[in-house]
Amino acid sequence: MKRILTMAAMLSLGFATMADAAGMDGQWARGDGNAKVRIAPCGSNICATNTWIKPGTPSEKAGDILTMTIKPVSNGEYSGTAFDPQRNMTYKISVSVKGDTMTTRGCVLAGLLCKDVNWARIN
C-alpha cells in the first residue's frame, strides 16, 4: 500500500491546456531524496517519468510513468486523477505548485488513505 501511495503522490498532473502545465514542466527531486522525475506533456495529458531512483529502492524503477489528467482549481492548485500503468491503478490526486516547490497528494480507497509528497525543482 505504501508503494501505491508513493507512486500516486509522486506526481499528479494532466491539464486542460499545455499553458497550465508550464509551471510544472521540468525535473523535480522528491523530498526524501529517493527519486527524481521529469514532468512533460504526453499527448493531451501530463506524464511524470522516474528518471532516477535511489539504489535499493525495491518498489520503484527508472522509467516508471504516471499519466495525469488534472485541471486547475485555483492559482497553482490542480486536481484530478493519475493513472499508474505499471500497477493498473488510478488515484485521486491534487498538486500545489509554488515557485520551485511542489506538493502532491495521492489518495486511494475513495480518498480514505492519502499521502503527501514534497518536491523541489532541479535547475
Rank of each mutant, 00 (worst) to 15 (best):
T69L: 05
M68P: 00
F83E: 12
Q86I: 13
K92A: 12
I53H: 06
T69V: 06
N34M: 13
K54F: 04
L113P: 01
D100H: 03
T6S: 09
R121A: 03
T90I: 06
M102K: 05
T51I: 14
W52V: 02
A40G: 07
S44N: 13
I4H: 14
T49K: 02
V97N: 03
A110V: 03
F15I: 07
V108C: 05
L66Q: 13
F83V: 13
T67R: 07
A35I: 14
N118W: 00
W119P: 01
D64I: 03
S44K: 12
T103H: 04
A19F: 08
I53Y: 07
K71L: 10
L11T: 13
I53V: 15
N50Y: 06
I46Q: 14
A22R: 10
L109W: 12
A62F: 03
R87T: 07
A120Y: 01
V108T: 14
V73D: 11
L66A: 08
A40C: 03
A22P: 00
N75F: 07
G31H: 12
I65N: 02
P55S: 14
R30C: 04
K92H: 10
T81A: 13
T81P: 04
K71F: 02
G80N: 09
A82L: 11
M10L: 15
M68K: 00
S74A: 13
N118K: 15
T67Q: 05
W52E: 15
K71H: 05
C47A: 15
E60N: 11
D25E: 08
S96C: 04
C47N: 01
V97D: 02
G111I: 03
T104P: 01
V117Y: 08
S94A: 13
S94F: 00
E77R: 07
P41R: 00
Y91D: 07
S74T: 06
Q86D: 14
G99I: 11
I93S: 11
G43E: 03
C107G: 04
I39T: 00
T101L: 05
V95H: 01
P55H: 11
A8G: 15
K54C: 05
R87H: 10
E77H: 10
P58K: 12
